[in-house]
Amino acid sequence: MVKQRGRGTTITAACAIAVVAVGALIAVQQLGGKGTTVAADASALQDVALAKQELAGIPETKGVLGSPSAPATIVMYGDLRCPVCRQWDAQEAPDVIANLVRPGKAKMDLRLWAILGPNSEAAHRAGYAAMQQNKLWLYATIVYDNQGDEQTNWFTDSFARAVAQAAGLDLKKFDADRKSGAADQMIQEIDAEAQAQGFTGTPTIGVSKSGGAPSYFNGVPTAADVAQAVAAA
């Protein structure tokens, strides 16, 4: 009896130590995942290679990813600082790109709608500059993969340039374009578009037969929902 109680105590102690160790690991991961600070140089950015692989070989023209002759268009109003957009970009966009955009069934138009204040506008000026080099999608994907806390102004100048460098942009042109009046004009135009259509948040996603008016989803669609809408367009 004493022997059984002794080994029971030892096993319990081992379990307790294991639980504490795992708790510490989880705490480290959770704290690391809050993203209150973001990378300030290109080498510290995460998943750049994955983003490049996801988009490799797909043409982009002025923010529209995919073949210009694709029969359907997927329109996405997104904010680069929006965590739900980040989630959609990580969870659904890879399937949409692999199954619809890459085979030429649809193209995707990313409309940068700043809904989270001046720091979003700064992010979208950078997005505009990336678009001028036909790398908006790569830029946006890297930004999403390295996104900071929504409650902070994490989109800093150094972060903007780090992502630009990682995406292979011409930094001189990038800096000039994001400070241009055209960048502000794009932000205002997209804001007016979104407000006119009564959108309430990002991401707002719609599908149209190319050239037609998009039908927008209520809520955030899955990749399967988008595929179904493209097939029906």
Partner: peptide
């Protein structure tokens, strides 16, 4: 499906900067 890519792409795929 593409679940492996999604999980590997998530912010939980790393712990203190090291892949899980």
């Amino acid at each position: 499906g593409g679940g492996c890519a999604t999980v590997q792409h998530s912010r939980y795929a790393e712990l203190a900067g090291i892949p899980v």
